[in-house]
Amino acid sequence: MALLEINNVSKHFGGLAALDEVSFSALEGEIHGLIGPNGAGKSTMFKNISGFYSPTTGTIRFNGQDIQGLSPSSIAKLGIVRTFQETTLFQELTVFENVLVGCHLEAEVNLLDALFGLNKKVQQKANVHALKVLDFMGLTERKDQLAIELPLGSQRALAIAIALAAKPKLILMDEPFAGMNPEETRQMMDLTRKVNETGVTIVLVEHDMKAVMGLCENITVLNFGTLLAQGKPDEIRQNDKVINAYLGGGH
């Protein structure tokens, strides 16, 4: 069953079409790859799905509900959480606090609770949940370090931990493998699979073809804002149009 359905989505900036009538869907429980040369419209697509942009035309359905045009926080409430290109973390906060922010939806506190410590249960619930997520991502030992002090691999793991803390049904991962060495890539692939095995659907934007081919069950290829190809990793690997787009340099 399709969890996320993108139907004829276009996004125009002035006269320029960053996305032009793109459709694809991600099935529940899968890892879906979204690839393409630079400027193909992958990031624009992510921003449309997560509510940072709203599509000029077209619809985005999640779990059978139209979500285009909703605010990022409402979309997060429905269960779509994204991670960001490069390492976007709350760098000045500790690892634990980072994940605690992710628990925002899980246990929101109001002003009076905050003042008088009334709702100890909510607070406790958030703390327990955060620790569980940290443990799952293998970050327990680093929980009191500042996010900015972590090595690259742990920073990426933390970014996913923040997303996981929000208990999403779907995580949009934006280039989690960028800049990693083979060992870090291998560990990150394991983590991604582990997250997926808990039942979380993943849409992955990535340039590292080894990671994409190794992880994804289905792949969507964009080029110049249009849909170029769709299929299983093997089909994509042998698709002439895809090979051309990549070898042609995309310019």
Binding site: P72, S73, A76, F90, E92, H104, V109, A114, I162, A166
Partner: peptide, 22 residues
């Protein structure tokens, strides 16, 4: 409190905070 933490989060990385539902 957690509110202070969320305010901080809004400051440092508003898009990231939004993306986890803030």
């Amino acid at each position: 409190s957690r509110i202070g933490l969320t305010l901080n989060a809004v400051h440092w990385k508003a898009p990231l905070a939004q993306s986890v539902g803030v």
